[in-house]
Simulated scan of single mutants.
Amino acid sequence: MEDPSEQVTTSAAVGSDRDYVQSLDRGLALLLAFDGEHPDPTLAELAQLTGFSRPAVRRFLITLERLGYVRAHGGRFSLTPRVLLIGQHYTESHALIGVAQPYLLQLAERTGESASLAVLDNAEVVYVGRVPVRRIMSINVQVGTRVPAHATSMGRVLLAWSPAAVVDDVLTRRPPVALTATTITDGVALRDALHLVRQQGWSIVNEELEPGLLSASAPVRDRSGTVVAALATSTSTGRSSPDELERDVIPLLLDAAGRISSELGFGPAPIRQSAHEGFY
């Protein structure tokens, strides 16, 4: 006799509409409506932001408040620190982040610049690890920050080794927009840029996300060789140039990314070093 749990797993794997829980979808959408522009919205504002009816928003808020994720105060609502547990569970359940952290620290020490680790989520790059050194971007970058994949070195690395369907989705269904005067938005030019990244094994992006921002990235691979993250360092055009980054920083990035990949099971195991020995 077939195990019922296996039936559920199989059905979920193929994305059956019968198993899709719309109320959960809406509850998460309501949580995501809280952001920097709307830190403590009213019920009416949440209804407008989500497109849900006021009675539905009220029911979701009551449930989230009882679960401890939302707090009511004077007709307004705000998230509680409990929502951080969701992100904490993500970081604790992903060996990648724990493995990468020492190398992020080493990279920041070696370059004197910020070091970051990111993954791809649809058309955006999500920071999952970061060691800040200097404030370069006008965006307040921290773990969880999202930036457009098409205009970043991390995004180029992650897209370069993504399946064709993922790249098609990013470049066609969600057309890239210009963020600076030099942002590449043409589909053919972007595909050419991704091809170059695959050929050389790394990416440098100059002032496409923000004026004055220069970044470089290298791929991090898991045991199977799949690119699961991008390791990056960023600086300003006033402190470096693409040529200097390629000459001085890319070797450090490739070495660090290779060591993280090795600890994840890709290739030979790395020789462990103290945090002050650098990469060589």
Rank of each mutant, 00 (worst) to 15 (best):
V14G: 01
V14T: 02
G15C: 13
S16V: 07
R18L: 09
Q22S: 15
Q22W: 15
Q22E: 12
L24G: 14
D25A: 15
R26D: 03
G27F: 01
L28K: 08
F34G: 04
P39R: 01
D40A: 09
A44F: 11
A44C: 09
L46H: 00
L46I: 04
T50R: 13
F52K: 11
P55T: 03
P55E: 05
I62E: 12
R66M: 11
L67K: 14
V70H: 00
R71N: 02
A72Q: 06
H73L: 13
G74K: 15
G75T: 01
P81S: 02
L84N: 07
I86P: 12
G87H: 10
Q88V: 15
Q88E: 07
H89I: 13
E92D: 10
H94M: 01
I97L: 04
P102A: 02
Y103V: 06
L105I: 10
Q106W: 08
L107E: 06
A108M: 09
E109S: 14
R110K: 12
R110M: 07
T111P: 14
G112A: 09
G112E: 05
S116T: 02
L117C: 08
V119M: 10
A123F: 10
A123L: 10
V125D: 08
G129R: 02
G129K: 04
V131A: 07
I136M: 10
M137K: 02
S138P: 06
